[in-house]
Amino acid sequence: MRELKIFAIVAFFSLLTYYLVEPYAHHAMHMKVDKDGNEIKIESHGFTYDGTDDIAEAKRKGDDALVAKKEAFWSDVVVVSSMTGDTVAGEAVFANCLGCHSGANINMGGVVPPNLDHAGAIYDKNYLIALIKDPAMASNVDHKYADTSMHPMGSIKFTVTDNQQIADVVAYILEKKVGEVTAKEVFTEACVRCHAVRYAKMTQIGETPKFKHRKDALAHEIKVIEEQDRIKAYMGNLPPDLSMMIRARSSHFLETFVENPQSGLPGTSMPRVGLNQEGYEKVKEYLTEAGDPSKKAREELGPWVIGFFVIFTILAFLWKKSMWRDLH
């Protein structure tokens, strides 16, 4: 039928244009290539951490010493990972952590040390091991330091030195620091020390409470600004507000970026935070609530509106048929 043939032609050229300007162009625009012009494929590892990306990055830099260092570091992590930890001994080691990770919201060396209340539920085991061995290496920001013990948590390298101790404390965290955790709690523990979410009234020092007096509100605001200044001094720039991030970046970018910030923004001062799959899902849930709260309503309403127009179109077709019946 002629009309269908014409429709097929129109649809073909429309879809071709769509393919070229959307999937194809965006792929070409965001493609990363190494110095030989080969595409660097950025893929998620399902929020597990074994240093694959880190070693590949070092290889691309052509720095053999760095490659060897990273390989040695991550193979050590595997060794500790296979050891059996003792949670009782681990609790004693964990006492060392509480000196900084007290939940008191006090900036130490650039940022507020995160609260570890649900660390066992939201972070990956290998990442925790790596972090205690060498925080800068684990979070893939060692390029920021001439000596990784200069990292704000770098002193851990001298306080927890024994592999068994690391296995113990990680076993303790994985067993005791768990439990039901909300999306907001995960986001607060993993992201809030640097990022604000103004659409959810979240600042770098936590959710902004309601104040009765303007004076108190202003005093709180000054505290936020002071904290932001400290973060700025440490990170080089104020990390962005994440209110709209769920719509400003593709889900593939967010996934791979949270897993390894260096993959999306080479050289960034953002550390890898080591979330596991469940932890990431919670963060995503929180960001969706802040930046795309209509998602559920949209998905619920869609079928009704489309259903209406399907019925409308069927009726219109019948009307058209009756009107055109005796024309030819």
Binding site: R298, G302, V305, F309, A316, F317, W319, K320, W324
Partner: peptide, 19 residues
């Protein structure tokens, strides 16, 4: 009558895109 039928088809596509 034909216009409105075509519009119906168009609106199905349109609201598919919207949602």
């Amino acid at each position: 009558s034909k216009d409105i039928f075509v519009m119906g088809v168009y609106f199905i596509l349109f609201f598919y895109l919207v949602f």
